[in-house]
Simulated assay, not measured.
Amino acid sequence: GGSMQFLMHGANFLKHRGGYLNTGIWSDKAMKAASYYGEVYEVASSKADHFSYIPKEDTFMVKPDTDYIYMTSNNTVHGTQWQTFPHVDVPLFCDMSSDFLSRPVAVTNFDFIYAGVQKNVGPAGVVVGIIKDSLLKHVREGLPDMLSYRTFADHDSTYNTPPVFCIYFVNRVAHWLEEQGGLTAIEARNAKKAALLYDCIDGSDGFYRGHATKDSRSVMNVTFNLPTPELEAKFVAEATARDLIGIKGHRSLGGCRASIYNAVTEEACQALADFMNEFKKKQ
């Protein structure tokens, strides 16, 4: 799964030091897992501000002999997302698990992309990996076969028996995406869905407070708080009664979170926005 990549990217490519753009708990976990193989450090981080923003490129501090820079494109827990991707002079790795195929991406700007498919593309148990042939030449020697990316590249991803049904499901979703008009159309659809909720938050006179700064807001995960924890609990309970489920925020952050991945409809987002407006008026 995706979490295995936290270890594998370091096992394969961490030889001197690895740099991390630490924007949430998943990049934090990846950095800690990779440290098993060598030195890791933060190129930039928003941890001190509760991961509420995406760092600007002019704040990056890249050390000499950095093997790669690792980033997470979308941060599910804190509701932040890279609006544009950085340009760096060392190999760029990206965990795109939570916004993969939600928008067009210039794949060639990255040296390694991986994505657990369970948010947008299929059932849990499949990871898509996209890696440059030139990077594969630098895989660490002497790794166990199942930890080496070269093994899977050399065996057409069938070194061991793959999860066939999950892969079939990914194929069907890829066809569905084409039927919707491709990634450009999906991007526009997702932006419209997110705008329904962010407009509700911004127009609430502070009753709803977004966790992420406006220039870092995620189109996949809308995170927000109400004035008190008691009101948040009431909000979640009443939303659930309306079949608006899964609104409670991640246990590490609290508050509320609407995860509006590709499969979530515009009508569902409108229903949530309508409920948010009604709930505010009743308090």
Rank of each mutant, 00 (worst) to 15 (best):
L7W: 04
N12Q: 07
Y20I: 11
L21M: 11
K29P: 09
A30R: 08
A33P: 09
Y36G: 05
E42K: 08
K47I: 04
A48P: 01
D58C: 00
K63D: 04
T76N: 05
V77Q: 07
P86K: 01
H87A: 04
L92Y: 02
D95M: 05
M96W: 06
M96L: 10
S98Y: 10
F100R: 08
P104A: 07
F110G: 03
F110L: 08
D111F: 04
D111H: 12
I113F: 07
A115G: 10
G116E: 07
V117N: 09
Q118W: 12
K119R: 15
V121A: 15
A124I: 14
G129S: 14
G129V: 15
G129C: 15
I131H: 03
L136D: 08
H138I: 08
E141K: 15
D145S: 15
L147Y: 14
Y149L: 13
D154C: 10
P163Q: 11
C166Q: 14
I167E: 14
I167D: 13
I167M: 13
Y168M: 10
F169A: 13
V170K: 04
E187W: 00
L197D: 01
Y198S: 03
R217P: 03
F224D: 00
E230V: 13
E232W: 03
A233D: 15
E238H: 07
A239M: 06
I245P: 09
G246L: 08
L253S: 06
S259W: 01
A263P: 03
V264R: 09
A268C: 09
A268V: 12
N277T: 13
K280Y: 07
Q283P: 04
